[in-house]
Design a protein around this nucleic acid. Structure first.
Length: 705
RNA sequence: GGGCAAUUAGCUCAGUGGUAGAGCGUUCCGUUCACAUCGGAAAGGUCACAGGUUCGAUACCUGUAUUGCCCACCA
């Protein structure tokens, strides 16, 4: 398409058309790129949630990836940027449930099957929104390869991965005290918790003449199975090994010594409730303590709580405090500032309860992930994030991979019906019925008429995201496009996602999925606060596109993305817009003077000192820009080009040529080269102008850098 | 509690062992034809604070303060 220089640059009118031209070219698809391209450059897009809408973080993250892809495409690489969306487990289930609630339908009325159908409907209707928003940014991903983590082939890879781990003996089932959301009815990983400050009380309860404990949760005392003290604590040392009688329950419980106990806090003696506290559970494991569950999955007291059965935990707390008071066992209560863990989705206070979960052993996998960084097979930039990554792996716990929700990959685990109806001639084999089978397809019992029923649990959503670098590729694509090169993501998912992709790739495919991880900065508000929808501090990047164009917005993002955190300053978008105007007008000037020249000459020799100077400068800037991009120094690269274009080329050289004869070829050449350098950063306007430059038939996006 | 980072012009940020730069904003001047979304010029900083290394530190080291982020988590 031709740019119309009789008017000022209008991004609104131009960007849609340019994007369509790119789509029509097919060049987003590596298989359709022209020319010999012997080397690959592959970027795996961090999967946005299907429920998501674009925020500033996506905008920055995807602009960076687009710069990498466009640069390498122009450099002659066979470039693949793999896009997709994540089913996002509980996040999506939550959104759809909320939607249904408006129609007064609960998911329980619908039942599992109908509910998941509804989620699929929802996904078909709204799941593509975020990808369409990315297109407005100029994202040059290969949309023909777009994947969804619940696509059949992807899901199959997820199941195979689970089965692989199971067969290795790395998957186990265990009762474990987990963070449980009573509202969503699911366990949550530590990383899915949000903490909020809360004012509560610290109650001092006398367990024996010698032992008083301090607790914020007296209701859990009903499930206490020990008292723990620090073994070096002189006050209690002599009591270790003895027992006390648990008040109310009148149960004998042992006093154990454990180093996890802080001498300075409270009284130095701690009640241990393995069932309802994760740290206590670990203490319980160490001392082989019994686990007595007194709170159920709806946050009510169980039968084991005796007369408090069926009370909500808070009601039970009040009653118990009162009862203790009456018994004269409440020594004192004091105000206490604490932090309560809440569900990251619904904000409900989580309740640690023992629950049957599936775990993936992390010893071998964690070691592999660690080794990948230590051996420099994978580099994380900025480098200090390698520490974040390694620290996590140093003391990583086994990964709880099961979730009690309906939307997700159901575990490929099949349980035998309780009854056994032996097949004829197999009466003697009835004991051989396998209680549980892990298999991709529904198994049949060899010995009896009994059926297998699939587990109700689904896998943690990160379990499926962890295989994105290969689960997202067809068999043929896998051969051509695995492993990839770069992964650009935010720092908060270095452990949740990046580490898990690395060990998944190594274990399942024997190769690291990518060699470079770039952690982009976090965009904060101008006064340094986190951008978030719930705080009302978020900004919709599409507003900037509508007002000033995608190029100006991309400019603003990269212009400011020099450090880690960005305090977002809107003025930068205006600067980007002004720069667009400058590019547009300088191009008009140069191209009007060069109507007759088809291609810029390659081996130009400057005649005047101004000519020589600009050519020299251009060569230097171009070299430096390439280096900067390859080193993930995008902001530096943009500042250099900006400086060169505006202050060297426009302010000095163009003005100089007005005074001197000739030099048109050099003008034309420097402009063309500038457009190329600018293209990865500001793809729309540069492509639009390039269509006007001489007889260019080629799109700038595939022009040689 | 542990770790990481930041502190430079009114604002958002670069930067370097030898007395500081950009964008935006401000002030003044300028519309001869690429661009007033422009050009030219100017004002504006004891580079958080204290010590140390050095001939010399904003830059290197130590400490302090403030801020932010990550991880762990206190019963």
């Amino acid at each position: 398409m031709k740019a119309d220089f009789s008017k000022p640059y209008d991004p609104k009118e131009t960007e849609g058309k340019i994007y369509q031209t790119w789509l029509d070219s097919g060049y987003f698809n590596p298989d359709k790129l022209p020319g010999k391209r012997s080397k690959n450059y592959i970027v795996y897009m961090p999967l946005p949630n299907v429920t998501g809408t674009l925020h500033m973080g996506h905008a920055l993250n995807n602009t960076i990836q687009d710069i990498l892809i466009r640069y390498h495409r122009m450099k002659g690489f066979r470039t693949l940027w793999l896009p997709g969306t994540d089913h996002a487990g509980i996040a999506t289930q939550y959104v759809v449930e909320k939607d249904l609630r408006k129609q007064n339908i609960s998911r329980f009325e619908l039942g599992r099957e109908k509910f998941t159908e509804k989620v699929w409907e929802w996904k078909e209707k709204y799941g593509g929104i975020i990808l369409d928003q990315l297109k407005k940014f100029g994202v040059s991903a290969d949309w023909s390869r777009t994947r969804f983590t619940m696509d059949q082939s992807y899901a199959e890879d997820v199941f195979k991965t689970f089965i692989h781990y199971y067969e290795k003996g790395w998957v186990y089932r265990g009762l474990r005290t987990v963070n449980w959301c009573p509202k969503d009815g699911t366990s949550l990983s530590e990383l899915e918790l949000e903490y909020a400050d809360a004012e509560t009380k610290l109650w001092y309860i006398k367990y024996s003449p010698e032992i008083t404990v301090a607790t914020t949760r007296p209701e859990t005392m009903l499930g206490d199975t020990a008292i723990a003290v620090n073994p070096s604590d002189k006050r209690y040392k002599h009591l270790i090994g003895k027992t006390v009688t648990l008040p109310i329950q009148n149960r004998e419980i042992p006093i154990v010594g454990d180093i996890a106990i802080d001498l300075k806090f409270g009284t130095g003696a701690v009640k241990v409730t393995p069932a309802h506290d994760i740290l206590d559970f670990e203490i319980g494991q160490r001392h082989k303590l019994e686990t007595i569950q007194v709170i159920n999955e709806r946050a009510k007291m169980t039968a084991a709580a005796g007369k408090y059965e069926e009370l909500k935990t808070i009601e039970a707390r009040e009653k118990i405090v009162n009862d203790l008071k009456e018994m004269g066992l409440l020594v004192k209560e004091e105000k206490y500032q604490t932090r309560v863990a809440k569900c990251y989705r619904c904000g409900t206070i989580i309740e640690p309860i023992p629950s049957n979960q599936w775990f993936l052993k992390m010893d071998k996998l964690g070691a592999m992930a660690k080794q990948a960084i230590k051996s420099k097979k994978v580099r994380i930039r900025p480098k200090n994030f390698e520490k974040t990554y390694l620290n996590w792996l140093e003391n990583v716990r086994d990964w709880s991979v099961s979730r009690q929700i309906w939307w997700g990959h159901r575990l490929p685990v099949w349980f035998h019906e309780p009854k056994c109806i032996p097949k004829k001639g197999h009466e003697k084999d009835s004991a051989k019925c396998e209680e549980m089978v892990v298999s991709l397809i529904k198994p049949e019992c060899k010995y009896c008429e009994g059926k297998y029923v699939q587990s109700d649990d689904v896998l943690d959503t990160w379990f499926s995201s962890a295989i994105w670098p290969f689960g997202g590729l067809s068999k043929k694509d896998f051969e051509n496009y695995y492993p990839g090169n770069a992964l650009v993501t935010a720092r908060d998912i270095i452990n949740l996602w990046v580490a898990r992709m690395i060990f998944s790739g190594l274990e399942l495919k024997k190769k690291v999925p990518f060699t470079d991880v770039f952690i982009n900065g976090t965009i904060l508000t101008k006064d340094g606060r986190r951008m978030s929808k719930s705080l009302g501090t978020g900004i919709d990047p599409l507003n900037y596109i509508n007002l000033h164009g995608a190029d100006a917005t991309r400019f603003a993002l990269i212009w400011q993305a020099s450090g880690q955190d960005i305090r977002w300053d809107e003025a930068a978008v205006m600067a980007g817009r002004k720069f667009c105007n400058k590019i547009w007008n300088a191009s008009r000037f140069v191209l009007q003077k060069n109507t007759g020249i088809a291609k810029p000459s390659k081996a130009l020799v400057g005649k005047t000192s101004a000519d020589k100077k600009i050519l020299k400068k251009l060569a230097a800037v171009k070299k430096q820009t390439g280096k900067n991009i390859e080193n993930f120094e995008f902001s530096k690269a943009l500042h250099d080009i900006y400086d060169f274009f505006w202050h060297e080329f426009c302010d000095v050289y163009i003005e100089e040529t007005k005074k001197q004869e000739g030099g048109q070829e050099i003008l034309f050449y420097v402009l063309s080269e500038s457009l190329k350098m600018l293209h990865p950063f500001m793809p729309f306007i540069t492509e639009a102008i390039y269509g006007n430059a001489g007889e260019n038939k080629k799109l700038l996006m595939i022009e040689k850098w």
